[in-house]
Design a protein around this nucleic acid. Sequence first.
DNA 1: CGAAAGGTTGACACTGGTCAAGCGGTGTGG
DNA 2: CCACACCGCTTGACCAGTGTCAACCTTTCG
Lengths: 241, 241
Amino acid sequence: MDTSRRDRILDELPAVCRACEARHGGLCGTLTTTQLAELNRHSSRRTVEAGSELVGQGDDVDHYSNILRGVVKLSKMMSDGRQQIVGLQFAPDFLGRPFHPESALSVEAATDLQLCSFPRTILERMIVAAPSMERGLLNQALKELDEARDWMLTLGRKNANEKVASFLFLIATHYDAEESRTTVFDLPLSRAEIADFLGLTIETVSRQMTKLRKEGVIAIENNRHITVTNMDRLASAAGED
Amino acid sequence: MDTSRRDRILDELPAVCRACEARHGGLCGTLTTTQLAELNRHSSRRTVEAGSELVGQGDDVDHYSNILRGVVKLSKMMSDGRQQIVGLQFAPDFLGRPFHPESALSVEAATDLQLCSFPRTILERMIVAAPSMERGLLNQALKELDEARDWMLTLGRKNANEKVASFLFLIATHYDAEESRTTVFDLPLSRAEIADFLGLTIETVSRQMTKLRKEGVIAIENNRHITVTNMDRLASAAGED
DNA sequence: CGAAAGGTTGACACTGGTCAAGCGGTGTGG
DNA sequence: CCACACCGCTTGACCAGTGTCAACCTTTCG
């Protein structure tokens, strides 16, 4: 990236931010132009390949990031290898937990990612100086908490059919918030990952997907490409009130 | 905090706060003496009977509280009546979600409670004026998020035996953080509530408790009174790493 | 073209749910 | 004071839903 050019426009909105999808969402949405410029001086964009681990369970964290494109999965593993995905993050979510140098989670790229990363120390210094950022972080944490608790209901009280429908509904509404009658998208997770998200086995996930397909609620092409032909029926299969 | 400084502060503290268990925990721990005095002017203590609902799913919230004594359960319900407890809160936790006038959860007294409550508007005004409170709220939200995600692993990937052991372990370590070899406590939840917390039925909870008793891991008196005779075996039954 | 990885399908087993009966403590009315 | 009913919990018998294991299919990629 061209550093000299970036320095020149320090007090304006950085060009790279002006075109950024995350500009008005996530953490950056809470920042003033000056703060954005300051953060941007230390930030770097990078791409990450699907499947790579960003941070391991128990690792030290030295960078925080905004997700510009792609899907990140957060997961926990037991000592015997059983795994549970405890969260999915989409652009423009913020990735990382300030003031906690050690991660309790494994953070992995579910799809190819584009990230905007900053060193831990820079961001923490900025947070202390700019309390408005703390509000942004609080809102993100509360959003994640809501999502986690919604998912606890799914994990604890829904059957396999409802779980799979809930997952498809989650992804569908995330890609097309309008909830139009028909929605098309590519699944960001493999069957094994969906199973780890739902607390099921891949066989059960597969069977329930087939069931939804045969019932005419969804169509499946190439395993990952899903067409929801009837959103209302998907929602009711998911047990949404 | 060093002793001399604490003595100085004690002189100015409201009398009721000076004796308060929540003084150094939860939200109040982040406040200066002046802020505490301000908050205290608008706060009122009250007791709540076990079983009463503090806030219903979808209700408007007009008060926030600190828990001084007792256990609060947060739960979600599906339209057909299936229920999942998505969080337990103990003294000195803060109860409520600033700037969100509507609750997505039902909040209920699991045991008899003693609360210290403040009107919504007062607290929100203070938060705007005192960014340090936002840090306190962020930390509480992150703590709840960690707990929720730990529990997602339990709900999604543990069997009935491990779930019940995990619950007992959670309560035991909460009452006696030392993890001494033997721990005694009263369960704050009925069998039905434990089932709703674990995503099981009361019959399964009962059977697994009996199993742990027959294996000599715990002893049970009067249904609620539990003696953990071997913490290590309880931990390993819970699948703790 | 062959091999590997990911996904589907079937047969069967087992865990946990369902339904029903019974136990034990507590509170109430005769 | 006893008889009774009620509530929370336990236990048993049975069954359904999901996991396990194995075979096979499909897609991808060297």
